[in-house]
Amino acid sequence: MTVTAHATISPRPGTPGVHPHGLPRPGRTLVMGVVNVTPDSFSDGGLSFAADAAVAHGLALLEQGADIVDVGGESTRPGAARPPVEEELRRVLPVVRELAAAGATVSVDTMRAEVAARALDAGARLINDVSGGLADPAMLPLAARAGTPYVLMHWRGHSAGMQGRAVYDHVVTDVLDELRLRIDAALEAGMGPDRLIIDPGLGFAKTPDHNWELLGRLGDVVALGHPVLVGASRKSFLGGLLADRTTGEPRPARLRDAATAAVSVLAAAQGVWCLRVHDVASTADAVRVTARWGVEATAARSPLSRVR
């Protein structure tokens, strides 16, 4: 196995330290808006399942400030069943094609190389693979040949059984070690280091405590030296934290956006490259506030700021 050097970086608070080739560089953490073309999403219950509705939703996210729109045709909520590849293609391709034609930077959220390849042909500019190349052995070679930016997430198995694999000696150390193995696999497949993005996989084979510990140590993920994508939006660990004080019922997914925006601030302050969210407007505001705060925090630490 090739030994990969992983650089340690120290980004200015509120700004990502490294950027993938060919994607927007606005000088702040990016915002990726979610377009679920599925009938069983945990977050919206299939509101954008029809292609026309999904395209309209993607365009609305762009208006709200999304830098990237992420189109997916397979639900990855715990326990979800996988659609056939033909069905995933039917869901995804028209939406990718229309949004790309409208000028959007489109990401395709898929674990299948065939879907990724067809989506790239339709205009997608980024592959977001929650399996990190483990679900389909053809994925890493495809991404390498295409030369496209590629999101590699920490993953231990498909949705149907992933929560049974949420066992770690030390979650941060184990996730970092497993990400390093997948980074090495991607580089050995021929992927350019400047195309590779990593994701700690919040909620995927993780308990709520695991998610919170990873969020508190995002700087360690950033220090691997690749752009970092974080997807905490509306996830169940937020619902549990905000559970009704009387009944103990978790807060419903669509009422978790304020908490998501708070996580967005904390993640942006640790130098992540991009945040994947359902409610774009609140996180678009959050990352701009964090970037502006970063300017002042950096200035306050400068020796010149103490000169009278």
Rank of each mutant, 00 (worst) to 15 (best):
T2N: 02
V3G: 02
V3N: 03
T4F: 06
P11N: 09
R12C: 01
R12Y: 00
G14M: 11
G14S: 05
T15I: 12
V18P: 00
H19R: 04
H21W: 02
G22S: 05
L23M: 07
V34R: 01
V35Y: 06
V35W: 04
V35L: 06
V35Q: 03
T38C: 05
P39I: 12
P39K: 09
D40L: 10
D40G: 09
S43C: 13
L47G: 11
A50L: 15
A53K: 09
L61T: 07
E63Y: 03
G65H: 10
I68M: 09
V69A: 09
D70L: 10
V71H: 08
V71D: 12
G73N: 08
R77G: 14
G79T: 14
A81H: 13
P83R: 15
E87R: 15
R90C: 06
V95F: 07
V96W: 02
E98M: 01
E98Y: 00
L99I: 14
A100D: 06
G103N: 13
G103M: 07
V108L: 09
T110S: 14
E114Y: 04
A116T: 13
A124T: 08
R125T: 01
R125A: 07
L126R: 00
I127Y: 02
D136F: 01
A138Q: 09
A143L: 04
A146G: 06
A146C: 02
G147H: 01
T148W: 02
T148L: 03
Y150L: 13
V151G: 02
L152I: 05
R156E: 08
R156C: 04
G157H: 08
G157W: 10
H158Q: 15
G161H: 14
M162G: 07
A166L: 01
A166S: 01
A166N: 01
T173G: 14
D174E: 14
V175N: 05
D177W: 02
L179H: 08
R180V: 04
L181M: 05
L187I: 10
E188P: 07
A189D: 15
G192D: 15
P193A: 12
R195S: 11
L196F: 06
L196S: 11
L196K: 06
I198V: 15
D199C: 13
T207Q: 10
P208D: 14
D209R: 15
H210W: 02
H210F: 02
N211H: 06
L214H: 08
L215R: 05
V222G: 11
L224F: 05
H226W: 15
G231P: 01
G231Y: 06
S233D: 12
R234T: 14
G240M: 14
L241P: 11
T246N: 15
P250E: 15
P252D: 08
A253W: 10
T260K: 11
V263F: 01
A267L: 07
G271V: 12
V277T: 06
V277N: 08
D279M: 00
V280E: 11
T283E: 14
D285R: 10
D285I: 00
A286W: 01
V287E: 09
V287L: 00
R288V: 14
R288T: 08
V289P: 04
V289H: 03
T290C: 14
A291Y: 08
G294D: 07
G294E: 02
V295K: 04
A299H: 14
R301G: 15
S302R: 11
R306P: 00
R308H: 11
